[in-house]
Simulated scan of single mutants.
Amino acid sequence: MRSLLLPLALLAGCATVPAPTPAPTPSATLPTAVVTASGETAAVATANADAADDPAVWRNAADPAASLIIGTDKKAGLYVYGLDGKVRDFSDAGRVNNVDVANHKGRAIVAASDRNDNASAHVALFGLDPATAKLTVLGRVPAGAGEAYGLCLYAAPDALYAFVVLKDGTINQLALDLSGPAPSARIVRTMKLGTQSEGCVVDPRTRRLYVAEEDVGLWRFDARAGGATTPVKIAAADGREIVADAEGVAIAAEGRGNGGYLVVSSQGDNAYAVYRLSDDRYVGRFRIGAGAFGATSETDGIEIATGNFGPQFPGGLMIAQDGDNAPAAQNFKLVDWRKVKAALGLR
């Protein structure tokens, strides 16, 4: 086309070829604070691959320093770490992507989104022994047609629910039954976002489910089995608060009622956006920068647990997957939650 336009322009004398309209550029991100990690886990065994993905925390109320971290290697299985970052156990569960843990009827139950069959989603279920830090396989339950991607648990008064986010944005709510010799589940409700989604978390205090739609932004739903299925948009992945992909989502519950903060991984610029739970208002963003344990980049899953976690984390703990832990394989970074609050001026 260019070879034809140039001779025509010369023949036309003063005629000129219009300049192309420049492509729109993303809005500049907002000011971003920097904190440093206070610890890290051992690297996952799968090297030279995008492998580590999502963490969860089981808090030992009797001895907070003895709390445990569960993390996925989405190529191989589930790790259990101590707060010192050392591996305490590994379960070769295969392609498990997201993980969560809940206390249910006196037991610590671990659930992971099972992608071993891309056409048929499952939830892999485990019992966690706090004394030995060992996982016991309970079984797998079907979670609908499609590829299992995101997962979060909701310990409601009536049942233990698992929300399974399929890769196409479908969200199936499963009621789990762990009373028999093998677990079972039934889909009680289905919700839908328009495109690929993954990270999710439930605030049991307000019965709200939060889900990240990767290229679109952050949404919330009613988490109750009989609740409305219409989502409410909290924030857009517009290059300011969140730079796509919107990935992991975590809640820092504080105070009574709906106090605390919602954090989402802004993967596109290696940062984290923070929203106030009481009114969904944006309150700031931060990065985990270089320090004794290195920075984080391209973070997938995150987790935050408030309260006392022993001398190293007396004011709460944030865990973030690190997409580039070179020269070692990927791992999870541990951050003192007090550092984040101080950096953003949060009370």
Rank of each mutant, 00 (worst) to 15 (best):
V57C: 06
R115I: 05
R189M: 09
V34W: 06
L135H: 06
L218W: 13
K167Q: 03
A9Y: 01
A121M: 04
V165P: 07
N172V: 05
D336H: 12
A111W: 01
A290F: 07
A328Y: 14
G106M: 02
R205A: 14
L344T: 04
K86R: 14
A62V: 13
I288Q: 03
G217C: 07
I187C: 02
A124F: 04
G307H: 07
P181D: 15
D177K: 01
S197H: 09
E247P: 06
Y282H: 03
A290Q: 14
R224F: 11
D84K: 01
L6A: 10
Q321A: 05
P24Q: 09
D84C: 10
L8P: 12
N308A: 12
C152S: 10
G255S: 08
R140M: 00
A235Y: 13
E147V: 09
I242G: 12
R287C: 11
I319T: 03
T29A: 15
A212V: 07
V123S: 00
A28T: 05
N103G: 14
P7M: 06
R240S: 13
G284E: 10
F309M: 14
V87Y: 02
V164F: 09
A12I: 11
G323H: 04
C14N: 11
H122M: 07
L83Q: 10
A45K: 04
L344W: 07
R207T: 13
L83R: 04
A43G: 00
K75W: 09
V164C: 06
V35P: 00
Y149D: 14
P311M: 04
F293M: 13
P231N: 03
T16E: 13
P31F: 02
T21S: 11
L8K: 02
K233I: 10
L153R: 00
D63Q: 15
V202R: 05
S67V: 00
D53L: 07
G260P: 00
L178F: 01
R276Y: 12
I109G: 08
G199H: 06
K86D: 15
A212P: 01
A111S: 03
K192L: 08
A326G: 08
P31L: 02
R88P: 08
I251E: 02
V263S: 07
R107Y: 04
V35E: 07
Y275N: 05
V243H: 07
L125W: 04
S179E: 06
F313A: 14
D84N: 12
A250L: 04
N331L: 06
Y275K: 00
Y261R: 02
